[in-house]
Design a protein around this nucleic acid. Structure first.
Lengths: 136, 136
DNA sequence: TCCCATACTGACACCGGGTGTCGATAAGGT
DNA sequence: ACCTTATCGACACCCGGTGTCAGTATGGGA
């Protein structure tokens, strides 16, 4: 989580497919499903299998290289994010995503959990709304 | 959302199956999947189909009677909650759930979103940890 | 109390996201 | 160049959830 953000996960082979996925993630700014990413790569002429996309995204997420979000339909979506702890403000129409920070929220979550006797506290905060561009 | 919490959704017929699901939800205190609930009802001798459980829970959720949570595996889980706006503090081991309120968080989310030009703001906040009983 | 329109039920087929398998392929150290 | 082995990807499969539709049961009306 503190390394310099390599395109592939360290200790693994660098393949054309992984490079392609890494490059695409660098260009995209919003959360995309595995199928979205597969489709986009095919459109760009990359020969790549859907299974490979699924597994590579999963591996990147496990390594903390990318963030995962579950859509309300239960589908996983991925996005390359900054290394610092943050949350997401997402447009429900165009999926435009803004990273936001909220130290006060972190502290609140920690305090509330401790008050109830909980430990090893983790939390998720997502804000969804309609962005200015999508309201016209 | 302001009515007195009927066991079934208003305007619909009251059936044995819906009553059974409503009763069970009243007794449970943590989030359960549709299959959990179906299994528990069968164990108690209720003749009820899995499809009916899925649809009834979905209807109750749509009516705002119960809260829905997506597990990290993408599975939906349900729980009867209080009418007031709240968030959940859940034990990752035993799933024990505590309802918590955080007006400061609501305001923060609203403020952050408005600052970025977003409107019709909604948000999700979940806190997960290990409860005192599950740490021994 | 009986009747009946119709909401509800639930077995089953089906859908779709995602994973296990395994022979073929290719990375990269020697 | 060679060989070990990680990776790829077509395919079968898993599983949570939904559509279908014939059969059932509710509850308002006569």
């Amino acid at each position: 989580m503190t390394e310099s953000r390599p395109t592939v996960v360290p200790g693994q082979r660098s393949t054309r497919q992984r490079a392609a996925i890494g490059d695409l993630l660098d260009q995209l700014d919003d959360f995309r499903s595995a199928q979205d990413i597969h489709e986009e790569l095919r459109r760009r002429g990359e020969g790549i299998g859907l299974t490979t996309v699924y597994r590579t995204l999963q591996a990147l997420a496990d390594a903390g290289e990318i963030d995962v979000l579950r859509t309300s339909a239960g589908e996983a979506s991925y996005r390359r994010c900054s290394d610092t702890h943050h949350h997401h403000l997402v447009c429900r129409v165009c999926r435009r995503t803004v990273e936001v920070e909220g130290p006060a929220v972190e502290h609140w979550a920690e305090k509330v959990a401790v008050e109830h006797g909980f430990a090893q506290i983790d939390h998720t905060v997502e804000i969804i709304g309609t962005c200015s561009g999508c309201r016209s």
